[in-house]
Design a protein around this nucleic acid. Sequence first.
RNA 1: CGGGGCGUAGCUCAGCUUGGCUAGAGCGCCUGGUUUGGGACCAGGAAGUCGGAGGUUCAAAUCCUCUCGCCCCGACCA
Length: 586
Amino acid sequence: MRYSQTLIPTVKEVPAEAEIPSHQLMIRAGFIRKVASGTYTYLPLGNRSLLKIIAIVREEMNRAGAQEILMPVLQPMELWEATGRREDYGETLAWFEDRHGRENVLAPTAEEVVTSLVAAEINSYRQLPVNLYQINTKVRDEFRPRFGVLRSREFIMKDAYSFHANVDDLEKTYRAMYDAYCRIFSRCGLKYVAVEADSGPIGGSASHEFMVPCSAGEDVIVHAEDFSYAANLEKAEIDAPAASPQLAAARQAAPAMEEVHTPGVGSIEAVCNFLKNRPADMIKTLVYTSGKDVIVALLRGDHEANENKLRRACDGAALEMAPPEVIKNVTSAAVGFAGPQGLAGKITRLIVDNSVAAMTSGVTGANKTDYHVRNVVPGRDFPLSGANVVVADIRNAVDGDTRGGKALKFSRGIEVGHVFKLGTKYSQKLSANFLDEQGQKQPCIMGCYGIGINRILASAIEMGHDDNGCVLPIAIAPFEVLVVPINISNPEVMGAAERIYKDLQAGGADVLLDDRDARPGVKFKDADLLGIPLRIVVGEKSLKEGKVELKARTEAKPTLVDLGAAVARTLDLAAQLKSQLSGESR
RNA sequence: CGGGGCGUAGCUCAGCUUGGCUAGAGCGCCUGGUUUGGGACCAGGAAGUCGGAGGUUCAAAUCCUCUCGCCCCGACCA
């Protein structure tokens, strides 16, 4: 394409609204323009990149045996009510009432629609498995759109849904998808980590998120130094503290519980200020309800509860923070003064975090408004075992924790993909059943697999940029080669540039010819900003010696090559860059 | 939704505290000329309901009230 005929509005100044490099550069390089909060127009360059990403995704999905379909963005609300997700999605669900009074959802995802399709069309195990995907716009009324294209209200997602007659078969497709994702992200030139995510209803390592580590990421990756283990914060398992040989003796020596008057001091922080102790010396008593059940969780004052882990410790029951009335009922004290002593008999279940079980003694609420107690010894003043007592890992990992003996590190990452074993949640609710070999009706077992197309581009730029602009991987750059004639009014220069341009195109390269009548400085600056991986400069001086300059975006200095050899050299280099992203090695 | 901030030319911003002249600058844009290897220079020019509505005042970009939009910090997700 010719630069002069393409809309590439580059800007020198850093846009005020953009905070992170990828957002700034996507605006500066003329990839996107904002339409409203969380919605963007992709200009020719941005759109070209998206199309290249989509082509890679499509190719790998097809190769992995998935079939492409196209589902509507507009979905009937009834489907969402049938699965209960109208409630689950809440405010994030974007919908409107049409002129006939029907409620329409703007698709944030498509489980309901595919599942109802399969319910109608699949009847027998002989028709399974199927893996259906689409690449389509998704809409989510995000509370807070942020970071440009990274968290927008509208985005392009590749979403795939697989249906199986049994769990083994799901496992096969899950692995095929996992492998396809590895190839996709490698081919896009991303450095990524597959992290374990909170497992679905099937259990095991049923879910993985594909993350691109970078400081702008919104998710926390918990990992071993060498990434031999990586999980998200929700999931990350923590070793229980090693049993100290002196623990029993220290507990023996601990003085009896002692009540202290702490008027109006309820929070951990306030108590620590008041009693001059550390949060790590406190035992936090959290009260949850699940239907009629009351569950109490004990955590060290400096730790955070992990509700996913808690739920698992309660055999998957849905938990909610107890309302104040329940807390008062159980503890006979105002909120903020709960303690585990004497509580076990009054509640459904007591769950003690490993770290609390390893404390010699702690400070906690006295179950009496305005009072706390000191010297509360686990095992003496509240039980660590019993029919309704569980000691477990129920908190978020923190600095200093280990897993399998390896220290856990924390990194931020951008989630670009997610593979998930769904089980029968949707197939049961929407009657996506099949008859098995015995003629028995069974719900399909499902998996789902998502990729954020726009996020791939944003995270590639987040990873690949320097002071001068984008440094894009060749597979997803809007063009592979940029040909820059210096001084277009010199017919020899322009003629040589045109020839190179045409020959490169004939050689299968994706070329942009900067045919603008602009000063060299302007062209060089824009060339760097756009981040096109290869650049050929045709200048008067070197041309007189029969040479042009060839430079990779990643290199500081150009190489002089013979005019006659330039095209072949460039095509060769492009092929090399591509093969580095083949996706076969990882 | 809570907390903080910002809305002035296409973009980045000054002016607002302490109301007062024709509302400014840089970049960009248009015309002419000189230039031509890392965002040139000279001359001329176009361009603004000061986010919107209401109020106070002789007088409002500036003060007050309301409203809309955008950005940043906190619970979800591709």
